[in-house]
Simulated assay, not measured.
Amino acid sequence: MTVQGDQVVEAALGWIGTPYVHQAGRKGAGCDCLGLIRGIWRERFGNEPEAVPAYSMDWSEPQGEEQLWAAALLHLRAKGVADEARGDVVLFRMRQGAVAKHLGVQSRVGADARFIHAYARHGVTESPLSGPWRRRIVARFEFPQGAL
């Protein structure tokens, strides 16, 4: 465990209970999965690195473009998918052949692995990183060192 990873998890835990609201990113008021990551960024770093344009629920699927993955590569540090740690930002592909469009923060590792994410009809919650979720992970990132 790193101090930085613990700080990211602590920040993410503070968002639990925030309702799901598409395109939002305000603790307690509403957020989606990207809004959760953006909110943690603002809490820990200050201003966001770029403005996020409006996006639809299908999140670049019609074009087949991995826009969320590309943005993560610009602002976060890529890791190996199997190199899990507390505080990692995990990117999921929700169905085979679709673009990756769901994000979460890993809160526990090992046999009791868990992650925090904003999920439609559930809001921000902590869920087990069970086999079905784990199989959907396509990339893993960490916030830049020293920025927290």
Results as ranks from 00 to 15, higher is better:
Met1Leu: 14
Val3Arg: 11
Gln4Lys: 03
Gln4Asn: 09
Gln4Val: 08
Gly5Glu: 00
Asp6His: 10
Glu10Met: 07
Leu13Val: 13
Gly14Ile: 06
Gly14Phe: 04
Trp15Lys: 00
Trp15Pro: 01
Trp15Phe: 03
Gly17Ser: 04
Pro19Phe: 03
Tyr20Cys: 03
Tyr20His: 08
His22Val: 05
Ala24Val: 06
Arg26His: 13
Gly30His: 01
Cys33Val: 01
Leu36Ile: 02
Ile37Glu: 04
Arg38Met: 12
Arg38Gln: 14
Ile40Asn: 00
Trp41Thr: 02
Arg42Glu: 11
Glu43Met: 07
Arg44Ile: 07
Arg44Ala: 10
Arg44Met: 13
Gly46Ala: 04
Glu48Thr: 14
Glu48Asn: 04
Pro49Ile: 01
Pro53Ser: 15
Ala54Leu: 09
Tyr55Met: 04
Ser56Ala: 15
Ser56Lys: 12
Trp59Gly: 02
Trp59Asp: 10
Ser60His: 12
Ser60Pro: 01
Glu65Thr: 15
Glu66Gln: 13
Glu66Ala: 06
Glu66Ile: 06
Gln67Phe: 08
Trp69Pro: 05
Trp69Thr: 15
Ala70Ile: 09
Ala71Asp: 13
Ala72Lys: 00
Leu73Lys: 11
Leu74Asp: 15
Leu76Met: 14
Ala78Met: 07
Lys79His: 10
Gly80Leu: 08
Val81Pro: 01
Ala82Asn: 12
Ala82Phe: 08
Ala85Met: 07
Asp88Glu: 08
Asp88Ala: 04
Val89Met: 00
Val90Glu: 06
Val90Gly: 04
Phe92Trp: 11
Phe92Val: 10
Phe92Ile: 10
Arg93Gly: 14
Met94Gln: 13
Arg95Ile: 09
Arg95Lys: 11
Arg95Trp: 10
Arg95Tyr: 12
Ala100Arg: 00
His102Thr: 08
Leu103Glu: 00
Ser107Phe: 06
Val109Cys: 09
Gly110Val: 05
Asp112Thr: 12
Ala113Gly: 14
Arg114Thr: 15
Phe115Gln: 00
Ala118Asp: 02
Tyr119Ala: 11
Tyr119Thr: 12
Ala120Leu: 13
Gly123Thr: 11
Gly123Asp: 09
Thr125Leu: 12
Thr125Ile: 15
Thr125Phe: 05
Glu126Leu: 03
Ser127Gly: 07
Pro128Asn: 10
Leu129Pro: 02
Gly131Trp: 02
Pro132Thr: 11
Pro132Lys: 05
Pro132Ser: 09
Trp133Lys: 09
Arg134Phe: 07
Arg136Thr: 12
Ile137Gly: 03
Ala139Cys: 09
Glu142Thr: 14
Glu142Gln: 13
Gln145Val: 14
Leu148Ile: 14
